[in-house]
Amino acid sequence: MLIDWFTVGAQVLNFLILAWLLKRFLYHPILDAIDAREQRIAQELADADRKKSEADLAREAFQRKSAAFDQERAALLNTATAAANAERQRLLDVAREEALSLSAKRQESLQSEAQALHLEISRRTRREVFAIARKALADLAGATLEERMVVAFLGRLQALSADDKEKLTSALQTAGKPIVVRSTVDLPTAQQAAIEGQVRDLLGATTTLSFETAPELVSGIELTTDGHKVAWSIEEYLVELESTVGDLLNPKLPPNAVPEKGKADVDRTAARDS
């Protein structure tokens, strides 16, 4: 007999016991652990979803704030730019006015400086020319400047036209005062006498002369009476020289041109050196 009924009963019992044991030690613990893990995972997922939604809300809020901030910043920037532009324009205007004012002052200063320099150059040139002429005359002709000056003056008197002589004579007679002869330096007596003789020959024996010294003449002699003058002076040559040198130094500058700084400095240095 293949079936042993005692064994069958024992195996049924054994199976039931095994089922209970496995239920106790295997199925329940394992399923509980799986359930707990699934619950935990679900909870973590729910937490993650909640955090994600919170993060989304926070991100949206941040984006809104960021957009508002951007707008505000752009508005402020525009305002600041406009204010800065206005201020820059104002400062530029002020600076331009100041520059124009300074330029005008500088122009005036340069002009006055140039005038002063011009006067100084004229004065020194006169002195130098006078000295050169005196020396050249002494070296070449053995004569003093005053002698040659008197000769030239007398020559000019003689060269007067008849009409001029007439006017001069009538002027002397109406004035009734002595004729003044002014010279740069005191004339020697011989030359005074020569001038006096020449004048008496020319205008009449009663004519009286008065000799004066005038340093402002630089070098020359002049005879003045009421409204008439006969003179020889080195001043005439200097005027011509000045005209020539002026043409060389100021070649066609425009009337409002501001002189360059370097040139002004050179002019100033030249003036200082001279």
Partner: peptide
């Protein structure tokens, strides 16, 4: 039959108990 069944029951129950007594959740 019965003896080997008991052996199997022992292995199954004891093995399960050994593993599941320190279950990680």
């Amino acid at each position: 039959t019965i003896a080997y069944t008991w052996g199997l029951m022992l292995v199954l129950a004891l093995g399960s108990h050994l593993v599941t007594r320190r279950l990680s959740k």
